[in-house]
Design a protein around this nucleic acid. Structure first.
Length: 497
RNA sequence: UCCGGCGUAGCUCAAUGGUAGAGCGCUUGGCUGUUAACCAGGAUGUUACAGGUUCGAGCCCUGUCGCCGGAGCCA
């Protein structure tokens, strides 16, 4: 009977078979320890000389060879996971060629070039599992609240938003673009079904090379009829809480394996922080924030010096280390530490400019990445920022009734400096106002006939938002770059594999 | 597009302008409980590419390419 490794605990003492791949091998004279992974988990298979055939085969299996293993599950404290397989038979399915990815240190370039193989390693597996849960939790959340999934087109006509950020594709004799949002279509669909959402890939041709950008990413976008900005904010808040709860509930081990500070995630509870753009502007310019940021620089400089001292110490230890593995482990530590040091040094170099930019923040401009970071680092919960200046935002956002310079929009900034993970708004439901806004932005209303029709036939207040799955995951998993949150990332400089 | 960093063995990295090295991985042998095992031996290089300076260049200079990070823009 084939079982999955994750189910070992319920088969203690039973004879079972597993199918999987060789993750690692160690031998101790008359015993071979095969580490086998099957996608559900990792187990230690113990092969002794007495089982002559199995011992012979197990001794010769290169890493990542596929195989079936049969034996008896038994509890053993020496086994990782608490259970191991006492092997009676090993049947290789395919003997692997020399596997390029070792269990040692690799650089990001090498790993990204071998992403198709890297996916087999524990770290990507943990992240992919969490990604699955995040997506499922989002969909469950909407399904349980009476939303209907509506798939929006990926190929769209040219005249949309700023064409410079879209990927053009040939479309028979004409030109089309890859969609960068389903929102406009969702607005029409929510007038049919009340509450709708879409989930799919989306494309941005922006030439951004940062840890927060991909050219192809996935977004979940709800759109609700009879909703105003507060309704949209509460919806987003409930959704994020639901998603974080689901991940904490199912993936505490994965999170810990990734080195995520789980306690920080537990603080993500209602209500989140709410600030208006004006409050953010005041915060950024305030003496208090400047002081806080300068103190932070001092703290980080001390932290940096600590790391540099630690690095010196490690270098000395490498020279003194006798055992080869010890040396290797130290080198890996040195590598990680160097990366952290370089990161922090770069950050510290940029910090004065960020402070200056925050201090001189002018009403009317959009929040920059550094401004978002400054705000989100001040809180341990996500922060909603609402009511941005009209000029910095898209044409379809509802003008504020209190201040005509503002729109009723919201961004959600993830804590710990991760920045924007959600952008949304109440939409302009008045046709005349919408047409006027289009003209202000230099758009031709005639290109948006179908969109304007939503405002002609029973127009109602409505709104929604878009959650960037990869950015949310990057925050939830505590990663330094979004490229690890998607199986095959597409960035400006990489299309392979 | 702009600014900065990097490019040395399959991988991660060393190497005052003066004989290209270490660890891992691979491979051969040893060991009956290993935890990124350990011990002993072995093979492994167009120092990204093209020029230049120099008695001599992995190192200095110029250009090209590739990657990484940041800015702008955004999820």
């Amino acid at each position: 009977m084939f079982i999955q490794i994750k189910d070992f605990a319920t088969h203690d003492g039973q004879k079972v078979s597993i199918r999987g791949w060789v993750y690692g091998r160690r031998s101790g004279g008359g015993v071979v320890f095969l580490q086998v992974r099957d996608g559900s988990g990792l187990c230690q298979c113990v092969v002794e000389t007495a089982t002559v055939d199995a011992f012979q085969k197990a001794s010769e299996l290169p890493r990542e060879s596929s195989l079936t293993v049969s034996g008896v599950v038994r509890r053993d404290d020496r086994a990782p996971g608490g259970f191991e397989l006492a092997v009676s038979a090993v049947e290789p399915i395919h003997l692997a060629e020399e596997y390029p990815i070792t269990r040692k240190a690799h650089g990001i370039d090498f790993l990204m070039s071998h992403r198709h193989l890297w996916l087999r390693s524990r770290r990507p597996v943990a992240i992919m599992r969490i990604r699955h849960t995040v997506i499922k939790a989002c969909r469950d959340f909407f399904d349980n609240r009476g939303f209907t999934l509506v798939d929006t087109p990926i190929l769209v006509a040219g005249a949309g938003e700023d064409a410079q950020t879209l990927f053009p594709v040939e479309y028979f004799d004409g030109k089309a673009f890859l969609a960068q949002t389903g929102q406009l279509y969702l607005e029409t669909a929510c007038m049919a079904l009340g509450k709708v959402y879409c989930f799919g890939p989306t494309f941005r041709a922006e030439k951004s090379k940062t840890r927060r950008h991909l050219t192809e990413f996935w977004m979940i976008e709800p759109e609700v009829a009879f909703a105003e900005l507060d309704d949209v904010v509460m919806l987003a808040e409930d959704m994020i809480c639901h998603v974080v709860d689901a991940v904490l509930c199912r993936h505490e081990d994965d999170l810990k394996f990734l080195g995520r500070d789980v306690e920080a995630l537990r603080k993500v509870k209602k209500p989140f922080v709410r600030m208006t753009y004006a409050e953010v502007a005041e915060n950024l310019r305030s003496e208090k924030t400047r002081k806080w940021l300068e103190d932070e620089i001092l703290r980080d400089k001390i932290r940096l010096q600590g790391w540099i001292d630690e690095l010196d110490e490690l270098v000395k230890q490498v020279d003194a280390a006798k055992k080869a593995t010890q040396k290797d482990k130290l080198q890996v530590q040195i590598h990680e530490l160097k990366e952290n040091i370089e990161d922090l040094e770069a950050d510290l170099r940029n910090r004065p400019a960020h402070i200056a930019s925050a201090q001189s923040f002018q009403f009317g401009s959009d929040l920059g990445g550094s401004d978002e970071t400054i705000i989100s680092r001040q809180f341990d919960k996500p922060v909603f920022v609402t009511d941005y200046p009209k000029q910095a935002k898209a044409f379809y956002m509802k003008e504020s009734a209190v201040d005509s310079r503002l729109v009723r929009n919201m961004d959600l900034l993830a804590p710990e400096g991760y920045g924007e993970i959600i952008g949304g708004s109440q939409r302009e439901e008045n046709q005349d106002a919408l047409v006027a806004r289009m003209k202000e932005k230099g758009l031709n209303p005639e290109d948006y006939g179908w969109y304007l029709d939503v405002r002609k036939y029973g127009s109602v207040p409505h709104g929604g938002f878009g959650l960037g799955i990869e950015r949310a995951l990057s925050w939830i998993c505590g990663l330094r770059h979004v490229r690890e949150t998607i199986p095959f990332p597409r960035t400006m400089g990489r299309m392979y594999p």
